[in-house]
Nucleic acid binder design. Structure first.
Lengths: 225, 225
DNA sequence: TTTTAAAAGATAGTATTACTATCTAGCTAA
DNA sequence: TTAGCTAGATAGTAATACTATCTTTTAAAA
């Protein structure tokens, strides 16, 4: 049996739904490759169009600008990750085990999932690490947030915060700890690779150690005292 | 007695030392105001030149491009913060007290320091919160890092990691915890203001609570078990 | 089978950005 | 007195970030 996974995206993110046409899917697939390769600053719709074999104007029919496209692919990732979290923690009773699963899902390399043919999750994971925060670090966060553009990110954090409270209903900072876990899972990975002296894993460059650091951080904090 | 504070900057950051001329100091002062006001993406040398009353070409004599200028002002901030940390923890024996001081220095609003006339530290603090990570989240981090551009940031983290080890020499992740404190001091502040559901301080919008969260996080982790 | 409407391709054009180059004027320190 | 540095003025270019319009292809409804 073949299962296909569809993440429902906020309609305000695009002008024309890229999931519904061949060109749309190409835009997503190739933009992931190009942003991964060049970084978001050097990524342009012109280059993307050349890469695909279409025109700049063609891309603009789908996305207002490259920043909206960045939000599109990052929030797609958060939506997908939440699906992974829910799927992988299903039927697990112990919140400690659940939390460990979540930390590992966040911090360790993603394998490309065949359930989504036109999206390479492994590349996307790298994009989240290097470019993810640029989605919201702008002068127009507030307006973007009013349009609910960051909902999948906030939902994922809410799910994690819930598990934290399951473990210890008295813990005072479940949301902040959840966003700390998510951000640090990626920043520590970036630091490990590019600014290794900011971490304790510079030599081994082992993602698993990032996960162990986060486990230690989280469980020390939420342990009932 | 009047004391003037000078932060020694990496010479690779500029083409002409902005500290040494009137125009140079104006470039720093006005770029801080403009980046604060428009955000880094909408900030251009043209606007800066108009704001100062000079020409674009004049700015390019000091800085290669706007990204170098961003690194200049962010690393200035890290250098200045390290001075603040060393100054404020001087003569304190207890590493726990020192760590609390550091956390509060990082997380709470900075007051404009008269020791540096042409730099407004309060604005700079806001720039660090919203734009700081863009200094290193680029495709050219590695080359920039080879030129030692991020040394002040890494030095500050090293100082904090040292205090952590003073408190508990057995703690396994002093560097990662240090960079986590620094990053989260700013990200939690950003979230609190712009994406409040990612934190537990959305309603009060009180910076002190960010500091308390970080204290709880840090001391739970490094407590000897 | 024809009509019609949506999607995509082709082409052109604009304002702004991110620079580089050159020339001149003013000041200052030897 | 002049040599050298700093800054102002002006001009120009390639690339970026769009917008507009017109035509062709495709695919589904009448």
């Amino acid at each position: 049996m073949e299962v296909q996974l569809q993440i429902k995206m906020n309609e305000k993110l695009f002008l024309r739904n890229p999931e519904q046409t061949e060109l749309g899917k190409k835009i997503i697939r190739h933009s992931i490759q190009l942003i991964y390769k060049n970084g978001f600053e050097l990524f342009t719709f012109k280059k993307l169009a050349e890469d695909i074999g279409t025109t700049e104007a063609g891309i603009y029919r789908y996305f207002e600008n490259k920043h909206r496209l960045l939000i599109y692919i990052t929030t797609w990732y958060w939506g997908w990750l939440q699906y992974c979290v829910v799927f992988n923690t299903n039927n697990i009773k112990d919140p400690a085990v659940k939390l460990k699963k979540v930390i590992h899902l966040l911090a360790t390399t993603v394998v490309d999932d065949d359930k989504t043919i036109h999206i390479n999750e492994a590349l996307l994971h790298q994009i989240i690490i290097a470019e993810g925060s640029k989605a919201y670090l702008t002068k127009h966060v507030t307006e973007d947030n009013k349009e609910q553009l960051f909902k999948p990110y906030k939902d994922l954090c809410a799910v994690i915060a819930e598990i934290i409270l399951e473990y210890n209903p008295q813990y005072k900072y479940p949301r902040s700890l959840a966003s700390t876990i998510v951000e640090m899972a990626h920043f520590q990975n970036f630091f490990m690779t590019h600014l290794p002296s900011l971490t304790d894993f510079g030599k081994s460059k082992d993602e698993l150690k990032v996960a162990l650091f986060l486990e230690d951080l989280v469980f020390s904090s939420i342990r009932k005292k």
